[in-house]
Amino acid sequence: MSKNDKQKSFLETFPTGKETESVFPGTIHELPGGGIVTSKLDDVINWARSNSLWPLTFATSCCGIEYMAVAGAKYDFSRFGFEVARATPRQADVIIIAGTIVNKMAPVLKRLYDQMADPKYVIAMGACAISGGPFFYNTYSVVKGADHVVPVDVYIPGCPPRPEALLHALIALQQKIKSGMTREQIREGKDIV
């Protein structure tokens, strides 16, 4: 990594560029004037949700191998508590679309998304899932971006992205969940509190 890139701090690399509340919820805040308030139930729930994202074992092509590498020993997303990859959509929280979605697969993806229990999140991993990537112009059978089929929370460019990039996206998703904001609010450019 060149010197120029290093100067970017870790938080600046995130889409929001801000740190959200990452302390353990339920902590006691001292209010001015001596009052004490415990953090809200919402915070507890969002903390739990953000730290327990169970992915669906869903990979269509090349990015699936990097997704496996993230699960592997060197990168190990179990450090964040994501390692409980569920094979059934009913028990999964996040669907990592790792690979191309073609026209025949699109209804299946939609079905899988519908079968998941709320709250559910989607990460589009790699160029194919974001926009069709290498298959954007010259093919007849590729969906030009998974967000035509299901709503996507986080996009990771790359073909395929490095394992660290997927971890980065997972941390970004965590931040989003902790902030409790919807996709629309973020798109409108509201600050993450």
């Binding site: 697969m105 010259n138 590729v142």
Partner: peptide, 21 residues
């Protein structure tokens, strides 16, 4: 057919340097 991306058809529109990727 769930991951048919028509790579063969696609290669016909790419030059000999490009189609390798």
């Amino acid at each position: 057919g769930y991951i048919h991306r028509s790579i063969e058809k696609m290669c016909e529109s790419l030059t000999y340097r490009q189609f390798i990727y």
